[in-house]
Design a protein around this nucleic acid. Structure first.
Lengths: 253, 253
DNA sequence: TAATAGTACTGGTAGTGACCACATTACCAG
DNA sequence: CTGGTAATGTGGTCACTACCAGTACTATTA
């Protein structure tokens, strides 16, 4: 790993510096709550202007690696490494974290006219076609969730069953094949009771409590890309989020 | 509302500019996806340096009001107003949004030794004392949630029943009296079934499905401040989150 | 001894000036 | 008509400079 700044590469200096600082934090060379070198010191250490230093630090503060204290210094956050939310809300990663083996059964993949509700969520005109993918999610071999995804793709963009089975993850197909990287999402969670069909697929009794998760994913340009509905077995699933307040930057005085 | 920058106030210029731009967006003066004036134009318009302009725009981009496109311009996000998560996860705001009248009954407020689980979550040593506040949350007068908060305060910091009833919101007391502003939180959600006591308080049948929400709030310095456990009536509550991916700042090339 | 003022650090705000990278358009040569 | 090219406007990066505002410590003073 580069421990110095290379002024000739196309990689911006602030980015290089941020990488170096992040390394120091992740490697544990800088203990939590201990101060990192002051901005003036870094200026000398790496022969970089303070503007650039602050840009690097800002990004790390924003990502939760560091926090500032006016008049005192900049410190390392005592934070268990938080992965991006995509990992956390991603089904597989989620299960692996709990020591379970994830799996899935793809029940269907089709191009179709979605129900009204989905059209609304995806902000599509009536009559639009979307990809619908229905999957049963498994944990250690037993069903844990019933997932239905509706994908809003540009005309001509297709997904085949083979791709789906090969890639395993829908997110991977989206990013690798279509260069779509969701950056925001709206999620709702509520409790429902299993219908006979759902009960059968999830191997629970009809009327058993389920956790219903609906999610709309937005692309970089704030366009709705995917609508996902997941029914989790209430007795075997726990939803997790890490929330971070946007620096509200309350009126300084 | 100030439409110009006042160079004499203590409020930073970048903050003033950001407020003006946000106003324009929220008032709908700038249509979604339409470009805002370029950075060089703003420089002239407000007689402010580009450094400051960029700082203002950066904060708005970060908050999701604007997005940039290299070589093209900066544009207004086509986004329904997203409040900070505190408003969204705040009980009262939440209900008001749905057209319901929020209310609460404070069942108890005491200083006590919390259960083991809470000590762990708050990262406190055994034997520590915390404030425990138990409330029944109401929507349009009927119970909707059962909330138990455990507060980790510095020795000597106290909350009285009067304050609690006067302020209405715990968050308000935290920020106004103790200057604690939670910036991050971990939340989990799962399904449980109502115990007889819970059923009584929530006016549902014993065994009715409930949404169990646990939350740990962290202060600016990443110290656990509050542990909250809320039991929602499954038939009357829906949880909502807006997720935003941290700008991963993938290696530029 | 206890309060006060100084001082030397920290991050916070702001201006200026330069050049780079990308997108769009107009124009020109083939 | 097509493909290249140059001009121009946009955001992206970076350096240097200056001063403000909070913090912690020290030396001075009452």
């Amino acid at each position: 790993m580069s421990r110095t700044i290379d002024p000739f590469t196309a990689v911006p200096k602030y980015f290089q510096l941020a990488s170096i600082l992040r390394q120091n934090i992740e490697d544990g060379e800088w203990a939590p709550r201990s101060p990192i070198p002051s901005e003036r010191q870094l200026e000398v250490l790496y022969n970089i202007s303070r503007t650039t230093i602050r840009e690097a630090i800002n990004s790390l503060v924003q990502q939760g690696y560091l926090y500032r204290e006016h008049g005192r210094g900049t410190f390392v956050s005592p934070q268990k490494l938080q992965k991006g939310w995509m990992e956390l809300t991603s089904f597989s990663e989620d299960l692996v974290k709990r020591g379970l083996v994830p799996g899935q059964i793809i029940r269907s993949l089709q191009l179709m006219q979605p129900p009204q509700r989905v059209l609304q969520r995806l902000e599509l005109p009536a009559g639009s076609l979307v990809h619908r993918i229905e999957r049963v999610r498994l944990a250690d071999g037993t069903p844990i969730g019933l997932q239905t995804s509706y994908l809003s793709l540009a005309p001509g963009q297709e997904i085949t069953m083979q791709e789906m089975e090969k890639a395993g993850s829908l997110d991977r197909i989206l990013s690798e094949k279509f260069h779509i990287i969701p950056t925001e999402a709206d999620e709702t969670l509520e409790v429902t009771l299993a219908t006979p069909e759902e009960a059968g697929l999830l191997q629970v009794a009809t009327g058993a409590p389920l956790l219903l998760n609906e999610r709309v994913l937005f692309s970089q340009e704030r366009t709705p890309v995917e609508y996902v509905k997941i029914l989790y077995r209430g007795d075997r699933y726990q939803y997790f989020v890490h929330l971070k307040r946007q620096a509200i930057a309350e009126n300084p005085r």
